[in-house]
């Protein structure tokens, strides 16, 4: 074994050991690295009790209601299995849409309503021109009507 091979073995071994250590640490922290909880996780009492946390999911279509004062918004966050009603007072981000992803921070009230202090829009990875989006939507509608028939 030449010294250079020995050094290579040490480098490869060192990086592999570090990688394994990092993988173990990250999998141990799996729970803590979560940015938000889904409504199903909240229902299963996996979310922290009595302190601020974030919930994430889709804004249920047709659930967004603006109250008379103009700045208070009510909507429902759903992961299609479970859903949580949310109340928020403030400015919503540009990408906040019904049927789109949202992450909101706040605490769960005793009445089961999530009192949000911050609402963030979670964008998806699809980028397309409006015409394509329209075409997709129409294709979706066409498919649905076929299914209904």
């Amino acid at each position: 074994m030449k010294p250079r091979h020995k050094r290579l073995a040490m480098i490869v071994g060192g990086v592999a050991a570090l990688g394994a250590a990092a993988a173990l640490v990250l999998s141990a922290f799996q729970q803590n690295l979560v940015f938000f909880f889904t409504p199903s996780q909240v229902a299963a009492n996996e979310a922290p009790q009595g302190r601020n946390f974030r919930i994430g999911g889709l804004v249920e279509a047709g659930s967004v209601k603006r109250q008379a004062d103009g700045v208070t918004v009510q909507f429902v966050v759903t992961d299609t299995a479970r859903s949580i009603p949310v109340v928020y007072r403030g400015i919503l981000p540009d990408l906040f849409r019904e049927g789109k992803g949202v992450v909101t921070q706040g605490r769960l009230g005793p009445d089961g309503v999530f009192q949000a202090s911050e609402v963030l829009a979670k964008h998806d990875e699809n980028y397309m021109p409006p015409e394509s989006a329209q075409a997709l939507e129409q294709a979706g509608k066409a498919q649905k009507s076929v299914v209904i028939r």
Binding site: D94, R97, H123, Y127, M128, P129, E131
Partner: peptide
């Protein structure tokens, strides 16, 4: 050249 995005 690239089109405008439908959401953003």
């Amino acid at each position: 050249v690239a089109p405008t995005d439908y959401q953003q």
